[in-house]
Amino acid sequence: MFDGRASGRPTSDTDMTTATLDPELRPALFDYLLRLGDDALVLGHRLSEWCGHGPYLEEDIALTNLALDCVGQANGLLGLAAEVEGAGRDADDLAFRRDALDFRNALIVELPKGDFGFTVARQLLFSAYAHLLYEALRESAFEPLAGIAAKAFKEARYHLRHSSEWLIRLGDGTDESRQRAQTALDDLWMYTGELFEKDDTLRTLVDAGLAPDPRALEAPWRERVEAVVSQATLTLPEDDFMLTGGRSGRHTEHLGHLLAEMQFLPRAYPDAVW
């Protein structure tokens, strides 16, 4: 019964758990897990804003399914972040009791949901990245992260397929859908550079074998995005100025508004349960 085909990575003697983690790696790993967890949480919240507002019933359900995956991933990642931090906080504390300055998500996920074309274009750009990232993270030497990544990788696969199918349909659709899809890609492009930045946190973790080098993900990411954009008969935007800052807590004004809504209940009624 328990010998089914393993789809995660087999564990080895050199694998680290929270207990055996080198204390010097803790701050960087905590920071990195917040980045991953916050990306998933904030994007999940943006997707959940479509609940009851989808273009038609099946798509409403699809977007909320994607939101649920993201929030579930965030729960696992932030729970692990709290464990690594070792300061007695839990996933809920990190999700609901931090302010915008302490969030580490990339700017691209916090932008307002926009029209359906914008949501689809962002999903394509982000899930193409998440799919490659989680694929690589399955090999992380930090075993609990490799496990969460193996699960998220499977989900990123159909997230990417969903947004690809839609971008192709919109781009190769009516004049209106085509123009909106192209505008969305153009508007989003300057937020994509941040996903592949390598700073001190990443240098530490890449050297220790805990995280993949984000720069190595950029070329395969571009190849996938280019393939979908070209099927959609749209034009890949030109590289120009890239806006960054989310990884160090410098966010757009949109994040504060999102948090005000997302965190309202636990802040107004601390420790509420049902």
Binding site: S7, G8, K154
Partner: peptide
């Protein structure tokens, strides 16, 4: 709750 191996529908009997 363990994540060691990601659940797959192949595990259903």
């Amino acid at each position: 709750t363990v994540f060691r191996e990601a659940w797959t529908t192949d595990w259903m009997t």
